[in-house]
Computed example of a mutant assay.
Amino acid sequence: MGGAMLAGWLAGGLAPSGFTVVDPVLTEAPAGVTLLRELPQGAAFDAVLLGIKPQMLGELAPSIAPFARGDTTVLSILAGVELATLAARFPDAGALVRMMPNLAAAIGKSPIALAGEGLDDAGRTEVTALLAPLGTPEWLASESLFDVVTALAGSGPGFVYRFIDALAASASALGLDPAQAQRLALATVEGASLLAAASPHSPAQLADRVASPGGTTRAGLDVLDADKALAQLIEATLRAAADRGAEMARAARG
């Protein structure tokens, strides 16, 4: 995820010289980006992005904490790690921001959920501007919503990929060449998504607008809508992901 964010920032025009990546195993970084195997002693940074595995936070936080002092903002993409946990690990940080992007950050199309502490209005504006090249930053009304947003925006691409795969597999089962079915399924979802993003109508309204009474689309929608089967399936999917996020948060506290 950190690599996708870096790619998005560079594609958005930010200078490579403004980034330092610390990774003991990464073979190379984009041109102009500093790559280090260990944390640099005595260095100072405006912001530190935590891109480690959540379960490694307890082990690595003591070595990272010296870089989270004064005016430094700690940005965390660690699933399930709450602001209170970050505050305990980095008590001298100037500000803390918990966020949940997804891999579409690499192309500037990621939703980015945000919650923070220690930021005034100007600080929030700066963080929003920093993340804008990656997609659509959204500050949440409450951190308690993070598990739901993580399920929707963080895990959501995986669910969409499953739907695309199901579209293609179903068309193939009905006789279409599998490779052609996949190309058409991808193009269908891409076009529908772009149109929905640009339309003044909601997705629900768009579905009804393309469904003529007695037509082919309506016949298919009747299957999806029967007994609210699709809505219930998606709600159960998001609930499972959100519940897992809550479990990870409880583990991180301990």
Rank of each mutant, 00 (worst) to 15 (best):
L6E: 04
W9D: 02
S17V: 10
F19Y: 05
L26K: 09
E28L: 04
A29H: 09
P30K: 01
T34C: 09
L36E: 05
L36Q: 10
R37A: 04
P40N: 04
Q55W: 07
M56D: 04
E59K: 12
L60S: 10
P62A: 07
A68C: 15
R69W: 07
T72L: 01
V74F: 08
L83C: 03
A84Q: 09
R89S: 13
R89V: 08
L96E: 02
P101D: 00
A105Y: 08
G108P: 07
K109N: 11
S110F: 06
A113K: 00
L114Y: 03
E117G: 03
G118W: 06
L119Q: 04
A122K: 12
T128P: 08
A129N: 04
L131Q: 05
A132K: 11
A132F: 02
A132N: 03
L134T: 02
L140H: 00
S142V: 01
S144F: 02
D147V: 12
S155M: 15
P157C: 08
R162M: 15
A166Y: 11
A166H: 14
A168R: 04
S170Q: 15
S170H: 15
A171N: 11
D177L: 01
D177P: 01
D177V: 07
P178I: 02
A185W: 00
L186F: 11
V189T: 00
V189K: 00
G191R: 03
S193Y: 00
L195K: 02
A196F: 00
P203Q: 00
Q205C: 01
D208Y: 11
A211D: 06
S212N: 05
G214Q: 15
G215W: 05
T216M: 07
T217C: 12
G220Y: 07
K228C: 10
L230E: 10
I234M: 14
E235P: 09
A236G: 11
L238Y: 09
D243N: 12
R244Q: 12
A246Y: 04
M248Y: 11
A249Q: 11
R250Q: 15
R250M: 15
A252N: 13
